[in-house]
Simulated scan of single mutants.
Amino acid sequence: MTSHPQQPFTFMEDENCQLLENAHSEFNKRNFDKAEELYARFISSCLQSRNCEASKLATAYNNRGQIKYFRVDFYEAMEDYTSAIQTDCQFPIPFYNRGLIRYRLGFFEDAKSDFQQALKLDANFEDAKMSLQQTLLDQQEKLNRGY
């Protein structure tokens, strides 16, 4: 929670909140094309107005990244996860999500770093713990094989 007083909503903020809620709704219904379009509109609006909560913008980037991940557009998904991290560096989920892609691409050192950062932010993040353990095992196996 922020410690400063909340500003009253402007029309633009209210409209953005509705856009984000609609995007989340479409995402949850697995209408990914529509959700992606709405997240893109929300992100664009935030970047133009420079008047959005970092956590909401980071969530929009992260969720749009998820949609790209589902389509196996790994590099585009990583860009969104990186944008989410740059927007809110205290949000562990995009670190974890980016780590999963880096792991799948065989970038074990980068994946390890992302999983460790996710755990630094949330020590109880069980999926990140398991993914870090698997990354370390696979990284060691790759070293043992000599490549």
Rank of each mutant, 00 (worst) to 15 (best):
Y39W: 11
R64I: 02
M1N: 09
N144V: 03
S44R: 03
H24C: 04
I93N: 13
E37I: 14
F115T: 14
T135C: 15
Y75C: 03
A60R: 11
N16G: 09
G99I: 04
L137T: 01
L100E: 03
Q90Y: 10
R71Q: 14
E36K: 02
C89W: 05
Q66C: 11
F42H: 13
D33A: 11
A60M: 05
F42R: 09
N63H: 12
E76T: 02
K120V: 04
L100I: 01
Q134H: 12
A123N: 10
P5Q: 09
F27V: 11
T82Y: 00
E36I: 02
K29Y: 06
L38Y: 02
S83G: 07
N28H: 08
L20M: 12
E15Q: 03
S131E: 03
Q7N: 15
Y61M: 09
T82N: 02
S25C: 07
L136R: 12
T2Q: 14
E76H: 08
M130R: 14
S3V: 06
L19E: 12
E79V: 05
M1D: 03
L143Y: 02
Q6E: 15
Y147T: 02
G106I: 14
R98T: 08
A123K: 09
E21A: 11
Q66L: 14
F9M: 14
Y81C: 13
A123T: 04
T87L: 11
H4G: 08
E126Y: 14
M78S: 01
Q86C: 14
I85Y: 02
K34H: 04
E109C: 05
T59Q: 06
Y81T: 09
L38W: 13
E26N: 12
N31A: 15
D114P: 07
I93F: 08
S131V: 00
P94T: 02
S3P: 00
M78Y: 05
Q7T: 09
D88T: 01
R30M: 01
D110N: 04
N28T: 00
Q140R: 10
N63L: 15
S44W: 06
N22Q: 12
R98P: 00
L137M: 08
P94R: 08
L119K: 04
S83C: 11
N22S: 13
G65F: 12
S83T: 01
V72L: 15
L132W: 01
L57E: 13
F42A: 05
F27N: 08
Q18V: 15
F11Y: 15
S131P: 01
A111P: 08
M78I: 07
N51G: 07
R102M: 00
E53V: 01
S44K: 06
Q18N: 13
C46P: 05
V72T: 14
E53T: 05
K142L: 13
L143H: 12
S131K: 01
F108Q: 00
R98I: 02
N144T: 06
H4Y: 13
H4F: 13
T87D: 15
R98C: 06
E109H: 07
G65L: 15
S49G: 06
S113C: 05
K34Y: 03
L137E: 10
G99N: 05
Q116L: 14
G146P: 07
